[in-house]
Design a protein around this nucleic acid. Structure first.
Lengths: 124, 124
DNA sequence: TCCGCTATTTGCGTTATGCATCTAGATAAT
DNA sequence: ATTATCTAGATGCATAACGCAAATAGCGGA
């Protein structure tokens, strides 16, 4: 899967303007159980995040970064998949904590957004 | 030591993860009437966006960019202010349209966020 | 053999933003 | 008069978080 994604807020299309949303999204998906990069790439655009296309390179890089910080742990899948070997990630306890922090952040973001939209609607 | 930069969603503090939110926020403020940069800097952190601190440089740069695209127009204030001359901006029709587009975008963002938070809460 | 998936990695460029610093007018305090 | 303080804005530098493109590689089918 190649990132399709047009962007440029304003003109027309575009990814959401949330930065650093890939990280919490991946943490949430991993909370459901271990998974590997390729699957997560598709997972993002299927399970609830259909409107939020993310490039695969971003996913892999984010996973690498998360592992470097101890938020996830990976190991090469012993055997049995249908293609090349996969690196399977699973959430650590620290990772779960991080997810919790992200959630707080995102709730704050949500409130800001609501205020903005409310202000806009009120000005009509 | 140059820009080390606090950030890091997760840990604790950090700017909101909304990118490109300064633009719609400024457009919304300008919809209420003409204003100048310094005022808008404070406007952002007072009128509804208290939790969304924005650096003044960002505000000035965003205004410059908006003007280059014809979304706002500025002129130096003829006279009468209490400090150095101000550059007063006002919204153009194109700017109002842009704001409308941003609003649509942000509603989409809002929906994504809701789904995310709902998923998280459901996993508890 | 060549194609099309699956799977991951890496180089390169862009963007929005923060921090620090500089200039400078106006006014109030010393 | 000098100095501090607020108002006002511009600019250099750094960087996180992406997207896009392309390389690498295992595997199964036509």
């Amino acid at each position: 899967m190649r990132g399709r994604g047009r962007w440029r807020g304003g003109r027309g299309e575009g990814p959401s303007q949330i930065r650093g949303f890939v990280q919490p999204a991946l943490l949430l998906l991993l909370q459901r159980g271990p998974s590997h990069g390729y699957d997560l790439v598709n997972g993002l655009s299927s399970v609830g995040f259909a409107d939020y296309p993310v490039d695969s390179s971003t996913v892999y890089r984010t996973l690498t970064a998360l592992e470097a910080e101890g938020m996830v742990i990976s190991e090469m899948e012993s055997q049995g998949s249908l293609g090349p070997p996969r690196r399977v990630y699973r959430l650590t306890a620290a990772g779960e904590g991080l997810l919790g922090n992200w959630v707080e952040q995102l709730r704050a973001t949500d409130r800001i957004l609501h205020r903005f939209l409310q202000e806009y609607d009120r000005s009509r």
